[in-house]
Structures are given as C-alpha cells and as structure tokens.
C-alpha cells in the first residue's frame, strides 16, 4: 500500500520538478521543447551499433503516433546489417549516376534535348526535381554524400496506401515521433527521402517487402553521432496571418 502511495506522489511531483505541463511567460525551454528545437539532422555516425532494445523503444514512440481514424497505416523495416546498408548505398549511387547522365544537361551528351526533357520532368515531378534534390543526385553519384551517411541502423517507413484520409501525413507524424524520441535518448537521426529510388529496383522491392498495398516513403538513419551536432540555430521567421477581433494582422 505504501509503495503505491509513494509511486503516486512521485508521479505528481515529477512534472513540477522538470517544469512540464505548465506555462509562464518567458519561461526557459522545457525538456520536450529542447529536444524539438535542438534536433539537427546528423550526417556522421560512429561505427558503434545501437542496442536492439533502444531501437525497439524508439519504434514504440512511432507506434503511438496519432493517425486519422486510428488507421495506423504504416509498416517498419529495420535494417541493421552493415553489408546490406552498403549494398543499398551502392544501388542508389548507381541509380543516381544514371539519373545524372540523363538529367544534367551541361554534361549530358544529349545536350539541348536533355535540357528540354529535364524541364518537362520538373514540371511533372516538381518536388522530386526541386533544385536541392537535383544537387543531391549529383553529390550521391559522385560519392560525396552517402545514402544513409554510414549509419549502423536504418528504419524504413512504409505507408499502407489504404489508410484513412491522409496516410502520408500519418507516416510523417509517426516518423517525427521516433526521431524526437531518438534524440531525447542521445541518438542522432537523419531523414532519407532518397529511398524513393528503390521503387526502380524490383529485387530490392521484393527483399524489403515493398509490394501493394505498401509503398516505401522514408528512411530514418539512426546511430550515435560523431561529436555533438545537436543545438539551436537560426532559421527564417514565417509570416503568419492572425485573425482576431474581426481584424487581420501579419505577425512573424
């Protein structure tokens, strides 16, 4: 009986001790806010493998993400095999070399024709061929950027396309839950959207279990960071339209 009482008292005492679940004007960041604000994408990992139980714990954070209609429209594939991760990196590098050959009109032997169909493709896939991923294709092809940045563990997030309402958003929320949990536990993470390339590889799709209704959406590289890359940074303010008392203001 006394044990139960003690546990309850501790549970009551702990939120106040870490300044959670309340707000005062100008108060310092609480632990959750700190993890959110200090999380940076990590692109250099130690060789040391992440303990299996820690990965399992991070996956739990994903399992309890909010979803539309509680449809939980996702599937996880965890890859901790160094050889397999290297093979995946090699495959994507090869694919990026092919893309670069066809899409880089400055160096493509197809010249002006390459420029034309690249412009056309950018119109069809404006997100995938945004100038930033365009640059990343070159970097991966040249080997300057590794697919999973040599992380020892990779969580691949698949979406179930039959999910309620907006399954892609649900997958995003789920992934962010895992990423924040991982950072709060001292790990580093990086979102890897380039796993999209595996949709061109029939053998990879079979190996990773990507078949209808599943679709490979994102990869999350997971590992112990080299140095301390987390920290708060400066970022652009966002223009916010604020309606109140029948008037509109613009705030930043």
């Amino acid at each position: 009986m006394t044990d139960v009482m003690e546990v309850e008292e501790n549970a009551k005492a702990s939120p106040a001790a870490v300044d959670m679940y309340e707000w005062r004007e100008g108060m310092p960041w609480n632990p959750v806010e700190r993890v959110i604000l200090e999380r940076r994408s990590v692109r250099k990992y130690k060789d040391k493998q992440v303990p299996e139980r820690l990965v399992r714990r991070i996956l739990e954070a994903g399992r309890f993400a909010p979803t539309a209609g509680n449809s939980q429209s996702w599937k996880f594939v965890v890859v901790r095999d160094r050889d397999m991760i290297d093979a995946m990196q090699k495959y994507v590098q090869l694919r990026c070399k092919v893309f670069k050959f066809f899409l880089n009109w400055q160096k493509s032997p197809l010249g002006k024709l390459a420029w034309f169909y690249t412009q056309l493709s950018a119109r069809v896939m404006p997100n995938l061929l945004h100038p930033i991923p365009f640059g990343a294709i070159s970097l991966i092809a040249e080997g300057k950027l590794k697919l999973f940045h040599d992380a020892p563990t990779v969580i691949l997030v698949l979406v179930d396309r039959r999910g309620a309402a907006k399954p892609l958003v649900d997958v995003g929320i789920c992934g962010q839950n895992m990423v924040l949990a991982a950072h709060s536990l001292g790990l580093g993470t990086c979102w890897v959207g380039f796993v999209e390339v595996f949709k061109f590889g029939t053998r990879w799709k079979k190996k990773l279990g990507v078949g209808w209704p599943y679709e490979l959406i994102e990869g999350i590289a997971l590992g112990y960071p080299v140095g301390n890359p987390d920290g708060m940074i400066e970022r652009e303010l966002q223009e916010i339209e604020w309606w109140e008392d029948g008037r509109k203001r613009t705030v930043f």
């Binding site: 604000l37 708060m232 940074i233 303010l237 966002q238 223009e239």
Partner: peptide
C-alpha cells in the same frame, strides 16, 4: 538563405532568428 525564383519562389518568410521563448 537559399532561394529560387519563378516556380520555386519562396513565399512568406522573414529574417533569420533563433528560437524565441516569448
């Protein structure tokens, strides 16, 4: 900060600022 014109024009952004705790 990076920015492209035309189709990828960046909209509704302000200056660089660190997190503000208001």
């Amino acid at each position: 900060t990076y920015g492209y014109d035309y189709f990828y024009k960046i909209l509704h952004r302000g200056e660089l600022a660190p997190p503000r705790n208001f």
